[in-house]
Nucleic acid binder design. Structure first.
Lengths: 227, 227
DNA sequence: ACCTCTCAAGCTGTATACAGCTGTGTTAAT
DNA sequence: ATTAACACAGCTGTATACAGCTTGAGAGGT
């Protein structure tokens, strides 16, 4: 009943925050492939005009996750099997570079963060929750980005992650049982590597688990489509 | 004096064409580092409103080549030595992937294009021309992109190229004598590899000559700044 | 029943007006 | 002479109105 708490302005939305919000929704499948995104609706929701919405969408376009056609609208792209393969083969190659191109020192803060993620991942086995799974992966991704000292590689790693994420997360709903122990193992191995200040190992671990993820995608997406 | 030829509308500028034009100017150093780009001026020049200009600039921003600050303006970024190093080390790693991730078949058209580039490069020795040098490299880059079948790698290769180009081309004005024979050798070796349908070799050749280019940058940019 | 044409609804693309921010130069007080 | 405050010029950021494109529904002819 406090009028102030109702009318209080949340942090004003910047183009960047809108960009991040939309991107996260695409990853979380709140915006599913094929769905139409109307600039006017998003503008109303975020409480801004179409201008900043258009700006945010324009930046997402180059990630190849949405497509805007004049007179029609903006739709979330359905990635072709070929594109998915392209994203994954590239990620497989980029992963080892995390180790070879990075010189970041691992601090206790990093170790705390991965420890937290491990606990949350183990909790996933009890309470199987799609959103939690995605958020844990998001934060793991953020942690890894913080370890990549090469700014260009970091940018590419981010881009490839977001292109893969929406596909990859769709698998969880189908094969969550496989995904959760795999995530826990990945986190545990990463923890060991971080404790040893071994970024080379971090890169290889990433490479391995991206491979596992890609295998699951091939099993559950590609095979189902061809049968 | 033909009124038609004066009033004839050139192809109407799209956001993409404006984006490409501005990006090329940055690479060609028509827009030099530190220079301020005013949206209103660009809008007047391209005969459009600020809206599409802003859209184009927004897309270039993520290449880390320009920076826009509210109330101040948009300036062409001066890449720090660290950023330059990041771009080059990443390009060195990406180059071999051209070969390992590509399955494109080389056609006579490709061979014609590289033959043309070789001739034009040899002509550079007679008429040393900075713009021609840049344009030859641009077209070589385009040719290589056409050979990369992995769409994600192609995107990253492009991005890294544009980030490197403006720095790299600046060297030509200082050390054109070194750059021209190096370019001719690179083109000739690429021609041989293409004739053999050897994309793996193409990747390694790129890797080698990017290394040469980086060495020149270190000599002429980094050394000069520290002495 | 079917095909075609037309038109209108609804979206994105663009132009324009205005709000807000920043740096600079000027002015006044000390 | 120096410094601090202030106002203004000029830029980007946002809102809004309008133009242009695309699609689908419906009317009308066959």
């Amino acid at each position: 009943m406090n009028a102030n708490s109702l009318t209080i302005e949340e942090t004003p939305h910047t183009v960047q925050s809108i960009h991040d919000a939309i991107l996260e929704r695409i990853c979380l499948l709140d915006f599913h492939p094929g769905q139409q995104l109307k600039e006017a609706d998003l503008a109303a929701e975020f409480g801004v005009s179409r201008t900043p919405i258009r700006d945010a969408l324009s930046r997402i376009t180059h990630l190849n996750l949405i497509e805007t056609r004049n007179g029609v609208g903006t739709v979330v792209k359905e990635l072709s099997n070929q594109k998915i393969a392209d994203v994954y083969t590239t990620r497989l190659e980029l992963a080892p570079l995390i180790g070879t191109l990075s010189t970041t020192e691992i601090t206790p803060v990093h170790l705390d963060r991965i420890q937290d993620l491990i606990l949350r991942a183990k909790n996933l086995e009890v309470e199987k929750n799609s959103r939690s799974y995605v958020l844990i992966n998001h934060e793991l991704h953020q942690l890894l980005c913080d370890l990549i000292s090469n700014s260009v590689l970091r940018s590419f790693w981010r881009q490839a992650y977001y292109q893969a994420a929406s596909v990859w997360y769709r698998i969880f709903d189908i094969a969550g049982e496989d995904s959760i122990p795999s995530l826990i193992n990945e986190l545990t191995e990463l923890q060991s590597a971080l404790k040893n200040q071994d970024l080379i190992a971090v890169g290889h671990i990433q490479r391995i688990y991206i491979g596992y993820g890609y295998t699951r995608i091939q099993q559950y997406l590609f095979d189902n489509k061809t049968k």
